[in-house]
Amino acid sequence: MPESLLPWRYQSPFIKSWQIDASHLDHYNHVNNVAYLTQVEALAWAHSNSLGLQFSDYQSLNRAMVIKRHELDYHLPSHEGDNLQCATWIVSCDNKLTLKRHFQFICERRQKTVFEALTTFVCVSLDSGAPKRLPEPFKEIYGNACIESSLQLQSTGEI
Results as ranks from 00 to 15, higher is better:
Val31Ser: 09
Asp94Tyr: 06
Met1Cys: 09
Lys139Thr: 08
Cys93Asp: 06
Asn62Thr: 02
Pro2Ala: 05
Ile15Thr: 04
Ser125Lys: 03
Lys139Asp: 02
Asn32Tyr: 09
Asn144Cys: 12
Gly157Asp: 08
Glu80Gln: 12
Gln85Asn: 13
Leu84Trp: 06
Trp18Tyr: 03
Glu140Asp: 11
Ser12Lys: 13
Glu136Thr: 10
Thr120Ala: 04
Ser12Cys: 09
Asn144Lys: 15
Pro131Met: 09
Gln11Lys: 12
Thr88His: 02
Asp26Gly: 07
Ser12Asp: 15
Ile147Arg: 01
His27Arg: 08
Gln54Ile: 04
Ala44Pro: 03
Ser23Gln: 12
Pro77Arg: 00
Ala145His: 08
Leu97Glu: 04
Gln59Glu: 13
Tyr10Met: 03
Val66Asp: 10
Arg69Trp: 00
Asn144Thr: 11
Ser56Trp: 06
Gly52Asp: 00
His79Tyr: 15
Glu41Asn: 07
Asp127Gln: 15
Ala64Thr: 06
Arg69His: 09
Trp89Pro: 02
Trp45Gly: 01
Tyr28Thr: 06
His75Lys: 13
Leu134Tyr: 03
Met65Gln: 10
Ala130His: 13
Leu25Asp: 05
Tyr142His: 09
Pro135Gln: 03
Gln11Pro: 02
Gln152Lys: 15
Ser50Tyr: 06
Leu151Arg: 10
Ser92Asn: 09
Asn33Phe: 09
Glu41Asp: 13
Ser125Gln: 03
Phe138Met: 13
Arg110Gly: 09
Ser4Pro: 04
Gln59Phe: 09
Gln85Ile: 02
Pro135Trp: 04
Tyr74Gly: 01
Asn49Trp: 05
Arg101Tyr: 07
Arg69Tyr: 07
Pro137Val: 04
Gly52Ser: 00
Ile20Asp: 05
Pro13Ala: 00
Glu71Gly: 06
Gln111Asn: 14
Ser48His: 13
Lys139Pro: 07
Phe115Thr: 04
Lys68Ile: 06
Glu116Leu: 03
Ser150Met: 11
Glu158Asn: 12
Ser60Glu: 12
Ser155Ile: 08
Thr156Gln: 14
Pro77Asn: 10
Val122Leu: 05
Leu53Tyr: 01
Ala42Val: 00
Glu148Cys: 01
Asn83Ala: 14
Trp45Glu: 05
Pro7Trp: 02
Gln39Gly: 01
Leu51Lys: 08
Leu72Phe: 04
Thr119Val: 15
Val124Ile: 15
Tyr28Trp: 11
Val91Leu: 06
Tyr28Ala: 15
His79Lys: 12
Cys93Ala: 10
Tyr142Val: 12
Pro135Thr: 03
Glu148Tyr: 07
Leu25Tyr: 06
Lys139Ser: 07
Trp18Phe: 04
Ile15Phe: 01
Trp8Ala: 01
Ile159Pro: 07
Cys123Lys: 00
Glu158Leu: 14
His75Asp: 08
Glu80Leu: 11
Tyr36Glu: 00
Ala64His: 04
Phe105Lys: 11
Asn49Glu: 14
His102Trp: 04
Ile20Met: 02
Arg9Phe: 10
Phe14Asn: 08
Leu43Asn: 03
Ser155Arg: 14
Tyr10Pro: 00
Glu41Pro: 00
Tyr10Arg: 08
Ala46Arg: 07
His24Ala: 10
Ser92Gln: 09
His30Phe: 11
Pro131His: 09
Cys123Asn: 10
Phe103Tyr: 13
Gln59Ser: 07
Leu37Tyr: 01
Pro13Val: 06
Thr98Arg: 15
Lys96Ala: 13
Ile20His: 04
Pro13Tyr: 01
Tyr58Trp: 12
